[in-house]
């Protein structure tokens, strides 16, 4: 019973939040909030790959794009006929189920992409892996750009808008939970062992390739999931949203939050998603200020914004 308490409480709070925000919150703020949730999924899953396992992935937006387009294509092409056949089920139950199916397909497609790119490239180290994953991200975009069935360069429109605050934050919570649990388990220590010293990890009987591919595939799965949520929130997809700079954004969130620091990355993600919006008042100075703030943070807190440290400092002071 106690094990169920926390998940149930989370779901209840999210449902209340969903009802409250959808009814009373300005649509602009709600959208920022939802983006924070989606970005948390992306940055936390990248944290597993870059932060905990120490493998430099520069193509996370590529996995997001694979998940977004795969789930959106399923929703657009398969949902109408499924809804037709399953018309006896009330749509309040059917639609969420179909949405979850679409998300699962998006995550699965990203897993396949993760395996396809991970198995050959994870033998590379550091900069080389970064370049290989960067190339992967670009290839994905070029392919999508030339696929007419998903809109190609025109963009993919008329995606059903199933996503909302509830789903996004439910999966954000799930991502943080899964990554947190995985890295705290004794088998999960292998991720950090590989980051610290690959040879020592090997000498302890850790199969480096298997552990790296595991981190990569799970990270890709959540990225695909985040992409699916994004697609069904915005109702429209375009390759420009998944460019190289998007991947860099996620890397910045992980680095600023502290590599391998679970809550630090969540906090940094929230901060970095809000910051460009908060700086809108500065008009053309906005992106300069944004970049300056990142530089200053890196200089002052090169090991990331540690939430725990803040908390304990605040407690010690009071």
């Amino acid at each position: 019973m106690r094990r169920l308490l926390l998940p149930l409480l989370t779901i209840a709070l999210l449902l209340i939040g969903n009802w409250l925000f959808n009814g009373y919150l300005n649509a602009y703020y709600l959208q920022i909030l939802v983006y924070i949730g989606i970005n948390i999924i992306l940055s936390t899953s990248l944290n597993l790959i870059n932060g905990y396992t120490g493998q430099f992935n520069l193509g996370h937006a590529g996995f997001m794009a694979v998940g977004a387009y795969a789930s959106a294509a399923f929703s657009v092409y398969a949902h109408p006929s499924l809804q037709h056949w399953l018309a006896f089920i009330p749509s309040t139950a059917l639609d969420p189920a179909l949405f979850l199916l679409s998300l699962a397909i998006g995550a699965f497609a990203a897993v396949l992409a993760g395996l396809a790119i991970g198995l050959p490239t994870l033998r590379l180290r550091g900069d080389y892996l970064a370049i290989a994953t960067l190339g992967f991200g670009e290839i994905v975009l070029v392919i999508i750009n030339n696929m007419d069935s998903v809109g190609g360069a025109r963009g993919f429109s008329d995606i059903p808008g199933y996503s909302n605050f509830f789903w996004v934050f439910l999966f954000a919570a799930l991502t943080v939970y899964v990554v947190g649990r995985m890295t705290r388990s004794s088998k999960g220590l292998a991720f950090m062992a590989i980051r610290d010293d690959e040879i020592a990890a090997l000498s302890l009987g850790i199969s480096n390739t298997r552990v790296k591919v595991t981190a990569f595939v799970i990270g890709a799965a959540f990225a695909g999931l985040g992409g699916g949520l994004y697609a069904h929130y915005l109702n429209y997809l375009h390759v420009n949203s998944f460019g190289f700079l998007k991947s860099v954004d996620f890397v910045v969130m992980v680095v600023l939050g502290g590599m391998g620091n679970l809550w630090g990355v969540v906090a940094a993600t929230a901060l970095l998603t809000m910051l460009p919006e908060l700086l809108r008042g500065f008009a053309e100075w906005r992106m300069i200020l944004y970049s300056l703030l990142i530089i200053v943070t890196m200089l002052l807190r090169s090991r990331g914004v540690s939430v725990k440290q803040w908390f304990f400092k605040a407690r010690a002071a009071s």
Partner: peptide
């Protein structure tokens, strides 16, 4: 291993 190679951050 030579040079100990412990996992410094763990």
């Amino acid at each position: 291993p030579e040079g100990r190679m412990i996992f410094a951050n763990l």
